[in-house]
Simulated assay, not measured.
Amino acid sequence: MPIPLKTRAFWAVYHRLEWAPVMQQPADKVRAASNLRRRMLRLPGMSPITGGRARGVAVEDSSFALVDGTVLPLRIYRPEAAPAAPRPVVVNFHGGGWVSGDPRQSEWWASSVAAQAGVVVVSVDYRLAPEHPFPTPAEDCYATTEWVVAHADEVGVDATRLAVMGDSAGGNLAAVVSLMARDRGGPAIALQVLIYPSTDISREYPSEHENATAPILQLADHRNVPGLYLSGERRDPADPYVSPLCAADHSGLPRALVQTAEFDLLRDQGIAYADALGAAGVEVEQTTYAGAVHGYISLPGVVPAAGPALAEAVRAIRSALRP
Rank of each mutant, 00 (worst) to 15 (best):
T288E: 15
H151W: 07
P215G: 09
A12K: 14
T70K: 02
C246Y: 12
D221W: 07
A290L: 14
P135D: 03
V242Q: 08
P226G: 04
T160V: 05
E208S: 05
R42H: 13
D200Q: 14
G307A: 14
L162Y: 03
Q24H: 03
T136M: 08
R161Y: 10
S62V: 01
A188Y: 02
N35Y: 12
N172W: 04
V258H: 10
A20G: 08
R39I: 08
E139R: 12
G56I: 10
G270T: 14
V282P: 06
N211A: 04
N35I: 13
R184H: 08
Y273N: 10
R182L: 05
L299T: 00
E312R: 12
A247D: 15
V284C: 13
A214H: 02
G281A: 05
V59A: 06
A280C: 11
S62W: 08
A84Y: 03
V177F: 01
V89T: 06
T288M: 15
R315N: 09
N92W: 12
R182Y: 06
E262P: 06
P86T: 01
V99Y: 01
L162M: 10
P21C: 09
A256T: 07
G170I: 00
G52W: 09
N172R: 00
H15L: 11
R322L: 14
P44A: 09
Y126M: 03
S202E: 10
I216N: 06
A115G: 07
E80D: 12
A110F: 07
V67C: 04
A220N: 12
A33I: 04
R16N: 05
V121P: 02
P215W: 06
S123T: 02
D158Y: 03
D264L: 02
D125S: 11
P244A: 11
A143F: 00
A110R: 02
W98Y: 11
F93N: 00
A129D: 06
N35R: 14
L66S: 03
V303I: 14
A311V: 05
D158A: 10
A309G: 10
A150L: 10
P197H: 05
V67Y: 06
D61Y: 02
G295T: 03
A152P: 02
H132E: 09
T288V: 14
A117C: 11
L17Y: 11
A280S: 14
A306C: 05
D275Q: 15
L173I: 06
R37T: 12
V177H: 02
T136N: 03
R31E: 15
R31F: 09
